[in-house]
Design a protein around this nucleic acid. Structure first.
Length: 472
RNA sequence: GGCCCCAUCGUCUAACGGUUAGGACAGCGGGUUUUCAAUCCGUCAAUCAGAGUUCGAUUCUCUGUGGGGUCACCA
């Protein structure tokens, strides 16, 4: 490999939101640039004005920014190569188009759409693949810009090439055809524009999904005609729909990546998860920081077969990253989902260990699982009695608990001290639940809740004893 | 249909041609100071099939099967 500076790019078309597939492509390109102290370019491929969706560019940038995938050159911040939006680079494509015409490697397409459809239908009826080059006109007219401009494939041959992920690849002659360089609307096609841009922007590595393998021979033929050495190709495996084997796409319910943000997945989780969905450094480590990923990332270890999306694993991974958060960050995240009156720092750890993603808090609120921290619970008193106990015994146990807790002063009222005091009583009983259950239930009013010690600490001495007395 | 790509537990994956085929998620079963959560331990579970090369194949080759991609004036 040369010692040329590594330059990668992510080049989405602004046709809507980004889903995990696109994000992962961007991530890998970014990781590779970072790893090599190179540059990462964001380029907008807006040459299909029909499919363009208003607001997409802002949305794409917002998505990447959320994840910390920061570009070094792009539409908003510019860079040394002019505009990073293809529709603003038409002069450049035209320049290369004229060069190809001059060399005899491009010609205006004389056919109407209807004529082409007919050719296609005929090939289809004869069960042959349609090849435009079989209809290539003998004499070319002059391209006046109103016709489509086609590439005149200089040599029909079978291509072999190397892919950093897939190894050696090849394709038959059927893969070559005279494809369109410039459309009748004056915009270049992807096939043409991306090659010119990558050349002009000095891109060294192209990461892209595997649907481009079959058109690579066409690209190679164009690289040949232009007399340039292609960048290194790294073909990424598809992300598959969960539970299926189809490539994940918007119509399969692929979500806007920012939905994951809204649901309260951490950006660290998404990066970690997507990095490992289709790449693996070997070994058994699964939780990575971004810096660790940059350090470990290699093209050779990108997977070649598709990987299914897996929300359960994503949830697990988010929990792991939540565990690694510091208290301040945790507080900010959790309070973002809590109403003002519930924003008590003491309940942060209790919530943190019970959620997979932060939007789960909303669910906890809906199920009234947090109310008891802030107001006295209303409950069915018969449920205070533990399964092996009686009403009389329960009263005695609660009374003993109250006495014992009253010995602790306000500042000593920590979960450790409460636990010590109560366990002393509990251990003297045939079953610890005979006292621990009624206390927990009296404090929370819930069948399922955190343990009584932490609840007591959060409520404080007065409130704890008051609730126990009411239980009697 | 032509061309091309892929193939290890249900899922994500590991394994210089030599391992009892490892880990993680999910599942199941337990332990942990009462319930849920968390945590710990255990357990179930895979090399698509058939040939070939080799002392030895998950690994290399071929064929088959299965899955996927692509054949646009979309990217």
């Amino acid at each position: 490999m040369s010692d040329k500076k590594v330059i990668t790019r992510f080049a989405p078309s602004p046709t809507g939101f980004m889903h995990v597939g696109g994000v992962r492509t961007a991530l890998y390109a970014w990781l590779w640039a970072k790893k090599n102290n190179g540059a990462f370019i964001l380029r907008i491929e807006d040459t299909d004005k029909e499919r363009e969706v208003e607001g997409s560019i802002a949305h794409i940038m917002e998505s990447l920014k959320w994840l910390g995938i920061q570009w070094d050159q792009g539409p908003d911040i510019g860079g040394p190569y002019g505009s990073y939006i293809q529709s603003e680079r038409l002069e450049l494509y035209k320049k290369y188009a004229l060069k190809l015409i001059e060399k005899g490697d491009a010609y205006p397409d004389p056919y109407t759409k209807e004529q082409l459809d007919e050719f296609r239908k005929k090939a289809d009826d004869e069960k042959r693949p349609f090849l435009y080059r079989e209809h290539r006109p003998e004499n070319f007219g002059i391209w006046d810009g109103t016709q489509a401009l086609r590439f005149k494939t200089p040599e029909i041959k079978s291509y072999k090439w190397h892919d950093a992920v897939r190894g050696d690849l090849s394709a038959g002659e059927e893969a070559l055809d005279d494809f369109i360089l410039i459309k009748t609307d004056g915009y270049p096609t992807y096939n043409f524009a991306h090659i010119i841009d990558d050349l002009q922007m000095e891109v060294t590595h192209i990461m892209r999904a595997d649907e481009f393998i079959s058109s690579t021979p066409k690209f190679l033929s164009l690289y040949d005609a232009l007399g340039i050495t292609p960048p290194i190709f790294a073909t990424l495996p598809p992300i598959l729909v969960e539970g299926g084997h189809k490539k994940l796409g918007k119509r399969d319910g692929a979500k806007d990546i920012l939905e994951y943000k809204k649901e309260g997945y951490l950006k660290e989780t998404m990066i970690n998860f997507l990095a490992l969905l289709g790449w693996n450094p070997g070994g058994e480590k699964e939780i990575y920081t971004v810096d660790e990923l940059i350090e470990a990332f290699t093209l050779e270890r990108i997977q070649i077969s598709g990987a299914q999306m897996n929300l359960e694993k994503l949830d697990w991974m988010n929990k792991e990253h939540i565990k690694k958060m510091n208290l301040e960050d945790l507080k900010n995240k959790i309070f973002g989902f809590l109403p003002k009156e519930y924003q008590n720092e003491k309940i942060i750890p209790v919530i943190a260990e019970r959620i997979a993603k932060f939007s789960d808090i909303t669910e906890m609120l809906e199920k009234a699982e947090l109310n008891f921290f802030f107001k006295e619970p209303i409950y069915d008193k018969t449920k205070l009695i533990y399964k092996t106990s009686t009403k009389e015994q329960t009263d005695i146990n609660i009374n003993n608990a109250i006495k014992s807790l009253e010995d602790l002063n306000e500042s000593q009222f920590t979960k450790e001290n409460v636990k010590e005091a109560l366990m002393q009583l509990a251990n003297a009983l045939p079953s610890r639940g005979e006292i621990l259950h009624p206390i927990r239930f009296a404090l929370s009013g819930l069948d399922k809740s955190p343990d009584p010690f932490i609840i007591a600490e959060i409520l404080g001495k007065n409130e704890t004893i008051s609730r126990l007395q009411k239980a009697l």
